[in-house]
Computed example of a mutant assay.
Amino acid sequence: MDHVKPAEVLEAIIGAGADKAALGIRQMLVKGFLAGAILACATTLAFTATQQTSLGVVGALIFPVGFVIIILLGLELVTGSFALIPLAVLERKASFRRMLANFGWVILGHLLGCALYAVLYGLTITKMGTDLSHPLVHTLITTSEAKTLGYKAMGLSGLGLVLIKAVLCNWMVTLGAVMAFTSRSTAGKIIAMWLPILIFFAQGFEHAVVNMFVIPAGMLLGAKVSLTDWWMWNQLPVLAGNLLGGVTLTGLGLYFSLKKKASPAASTGSPVETGEGRFIPAPASRAGESV
């Protein structure tokens, strides 16, 4: 059967989280770099589709192509890891220190990948800086300002709003990462991943890696946004909200709903009653097995 049972999915994502935590620095940087650039490319594709059709939902239908490429190639997307690695830590298959190391190095890789694509794409749509008439120039500038100065104008309410939108965003993004484990076929994985990613992008929620491209790209093209505006009013609260949403709504939500508890008999070694008046010995626990 192509479909994978939810309990098996849980064990698979815990294992994937452990594997991610065990990556070396070079792997984390390069995989994060590639993922950031690919997601940035998918973002400009979605913006282009929206501009051409005047329908935001068309861009949302297209955007998940970047996420699919990242997952199928086994690259590192920190927002997806926000749900997977904490479960590996909870199961003692990865250390807290290794989790933080993964997050830090992958985020740095994202920033570098998004920055490179922002420069190259900016040179492309401005014809090497000589023409600012391309419609995507205006889109990137206004989006960059809306994602920073728009929240800044609201004060503390703006910080609360951006945090909420980040939590909702990564609830869907981490579900996309988990859904990749629900099928054994490539086609099944693609369809399963596509759905939650479409949901987040269509509703304008806040994704940290997308913003690592959109905001700096707008700044390079002339958006009146400072580094402080970028990090204080968007990037840091969005990272915090993405982490919170990924850990709680997806990671722990699935963990506590799907994790099977060992029976008292299995944990104590007591015999198990068969229901027919007979007893059979309880199976012995394997060394290192979680109970």
Rank of each mutant, 00 (worst) to 15 (best):
L84F: 11
C114P: 08
K93R: 15
A60E: 00
D229S: 06
S270Y: 06
A187F: 13
L132Q: 14
F200R: 08
A262S: 13
G204W: 00
V238L: 05
I191K: 08
E289G: 05
C169A: 00
T142L: 13
F82M: 13
T44L: 06
T143S: 12
G275C: 03
L132W: 11
P264R: 12
L221N: 01
A35I: 05
L175N: 01
L136C: 12
V178L: 07
G59T: 11
V272Q: 01
A262G: 15
E8I: 11
A40I: 08
E289I: 08
V238N: 03
F205N: 00
A101H: 09
G150M: 01
V119M: 08
L243V: 15
E91V: 09
T186S: 15
L161A: 13
A94D: 02
L90K: 13
F82A: 14
L45R: 12
T130A: 13
A42E: 08
T148E: 02
A115R: 01
L252Y: 05
D131P: 10
E273C: 04
F200L: 09
R278H: 10
L243E: 04
V68M: 08
M219K: 04
A83V: 06
R184M: 10
V4K: 08
I191H: 03
L244S: 11
R184S: 15
A88F: 09
E273L: 12
K224M: 04
T43C: 12
I280D: 09
C41V: 14
A40R: 01
T79E: 08
P216S: 02
F103K: 05
G158H: 05
G246Y: 00
T274L: 07
V4I: 12
V9F: 04
I38Y: 02
A266H: 14
A240P: 13
P196G: 01
G275D: 03
L29N: 08
L45M: 15
G218Y: 00
P271Q: 12
V119G: 09
I199G: 07
N170Y: 05
G32D: 11
L220P: 10
P283E: 04
K31P: 06
S185E: 13
A83H: 02
R278L: 10
I215V: 15
A180Y: 02
Y117K: 03
H207N: 07
E276W: 12
L258H: 05
A40K: 00
V106G: 13
L258M: 15
A202P: 03
S290M: 12
L140G: 09
